[in-house]
Design a protein around this nucleic acid. Structure first.
Length: 155
DNA sequence: GCCAACGTTGGC
DNA sequence: GCCAACGTTGGC
């Protein structure tokens, strides 16, 4: 089993939205590196739901991967902002289904994660806090997952 | 709203 | 294949 972190702007789609939907398609990823990580995901894998570009930036909770990756229907949907002309020939983008698991009592804030990393070498190579990182989908190591779960307040 | 950092595009 | 220009991400 593998661990992941996926970013979403809560104004667009938040962990509260996923909680209500229970299961939802994670689509619109338009970055090759992120796509390749989606390709590696397996049903049952766990992922942090990260809220980006918002008031309280950080890890809001946990979800599980609920399917294998499949072609992203938005890539060939001309009415979608995620439409991709090149994908009409061959759909080059992937989507995957995510299932709601838990919401943390408090968002584990980015600033707190950075502070943790100063004292915990397990977080040293966490992609999330590396300078200039913009990946919206990234792997999380076993140790990093444990470390971050220890730091959060579960519900 | 600003801007650093990055990814993509396209001319050459 | 190089690289300048451009668009996007995302923290602050």
């Amino acid at each position: 089993m593998s661990y992941w972190l996926l970013k979403s702007e809560p104004d667009e789609f938040s962990i509260q939205d996923l909680r209500l939907k229970k299961t939802e398609r994670w689509d619109g990823v338009r970055n090759y590196q992120a796509r390749n990580f989606i390709e590696q995901m397996q049903p049952g894998d766990l992922a942090f739901f990260y809220h980006s570009s918002c008031k309280t930036i950080g890890i809001a909770g946990v979800m599980s991967i609920a399917s294998h990756a499949y072609p992203d229907p938005l890539a060939v949907d001309k009415s979608s902002p995620y439409f991709d002309e090149q994908s009409l020939q061959k759909n080059r983008w992937l989507a995957i289904d995510m299932q709601y698991k838990t919401t943390f009592k408090h968002v584990l804030k980015l600033a707190n994660i950075k502070a943790l990393a100063l004292n915990d070498e397990r977080l040293l190579d966490l992609k999330l806090i590396q300078k200039g990182n913009r990946l919206s989908v990234m792997p999380i190591s076993n140790e990093q997952w444990q470390c971050l779960m220890e730091a959060c307040v579960p519900n």
